[in-house]
Simulated assay, not measured.
Amino acid sequence: MSNAFEPLPPDQAGGTRSAPAPVAGLEAVYDVPVQVSAVLGRATLQVSQLLKLGRGAVVELDRKLGEAVDIYVNNRLVARGEVVMVEDNRLGVTMTEIVKLDRAG
């Protein structure tokens, strides 16, 4: 199974695209909860190293600053994005690429 990434085009104002209009017939699934995760990076540690971590410890991840983050919905990779600052010093993720999965095979 191969993954291909397609960037999302910006809207007329140069920002990100707005949410699509509701699709008729899909109202039944609008209230179904899904788990959305943004993976900033990964690290492998031994249990002994993990137990030594304390407040303020730094764990080096396998991603570089400015590199895209993976966005998962229900543990399935669906997109890539960038970390952004939201009001009140909170972080968010802007979706920049949709992952298209090859269903053949």
Rank of each mutant, 00 (worst) to 15 (best):
M1L: 06
S2A: 10
S2V: 09
N3C: 05
A4V: 11
F5V: 12
F5M: 13
P7R: 15
P7E: 14
P7N: 14
L8W: 09
P9T: 13
P10H: 13
G14V: 07
A19Y: 04
P20L: 10
A21I: 09
P22Q: 08
P22Y: 08
V23D: 03
A24N: 04
A24Q: 09
L26C: 01
V36F: 04
V36W: 05
S37K: 11
S37R: 10
S37C: 05
L40H: 06
L40E: 07
L40A: 07
R42Y: 11
R42K: 14
L45M: 15
Q46G: 15
Q46V: 13
V47W: 14
L50C: 11
L51W: 13
L51A: 15
R55K: 15
G56S: 15
G56K: 14
A57T: 10
V58H: 05
L61D: 11
D62Q: 04
R63L: 03
K64G: 10
L65K: 08
G66W: 08
E67N: 01
E67D: 06
A68Y: 01
A68P: 02
A68S: 11
D70R: 04
I71S: 01
Y72K: 10
Y72F: 14
Y72A: 06
V73E: 00
V73Q: 02
R76C: 02
R76W: 01
V78F: 01
D88L: 01
D88N: 06
D88I: 00
R90T: 11
L91D: 04
L91V: 09
G92F: 07
G92W: 06
T94V: 08
T96M: 00
T96G: 00
E97F: 09
V99H: 04
D102R: 07
R103E: 14
A104F: 11
